[in-house]
Amino acid sequence: MQRLPDTSLTVALASGGRALFGWGQDRHLTADLFDAINQNTRATGQWGKSKAPKIPPFPRPEPKKKAPEKQAKKRRSVAEIYKQFQRR
């Protein structure tokens, strides 16, 4: 997968799911910049005696969570495997 645009569906599916379609490097940087400006506003704003307002972060897509790994299979001896083939 070389030279595919980072906003392509193939890259999105490889990165975590269809929700990431259209989310290229530029969109991620824009969302990070938006959050950084909001944090700077909260930190340096003149709020007086009141608390700084909670500014919600830029909405980002949530990639699909990977399924939990299955437990390791129980080791079997050669005799057990042979018995399984004899049942057929």
Rank of each mutant, 00 (worst) to 15 (best):
R75H: 13
A43N: 04
Q71E: 14
P53V: 05
V78A: 14
D35N: 04
G17S: 02
D26Y: 05
V78L: 14
Q46H: 14
L33T: 07
A79D: 14
R27L: 15
Q39S: 06
L13S: 03
K83P: 06
I37L: 15
Q84C: 03
A36N: 06
R18A: 15
P5H: 09
Q25I: 11
W47G: 00
K73Q: 13
K74F: 09
A12C: 02
S15D: 09
P68M: 08
W47H: 02
A19P: 00
F58K: 03
D32S: 07
K51H: 06
W47D: 02
P63Q: 00
L4Y: 03
D26G: 09
R60S: 05
D32I: 07
G22E: 08
P68C: 03
P57L: 02
G48N: 09
G16R: 01
T30K: 11
I37M: 15
N38T: 08
Q84R: 11
F21G: 00
R75Q: 10
K64G: 04
R87N: 12
R87T: 13
T7M: 03
T30L: 15
L9P: 02
A72Y: 07
M1C: 12
A19W: 04
A19N: 00
K49H: 13
Q71G: 05
T30S: 15
W47Q: 01
F58W: 14
T44H: 15
L9S: 04
P57M: 02
F85I: 11
Q84W: 09
P63C: 06
G45C: 09
Q84E: 15
D6R: 00
F58T: 04
R88K: 11
R76H: 08
G48W: 09
P53Q: 04
T41D: 13
S15R: 05
K54N: 13
V11G: 03
D6G: 00
I55A: 02
I37E: 11
Q84V: 04
L9E: 14
A79I: 08
L4M: 09
A43R: 01
K83H: 11
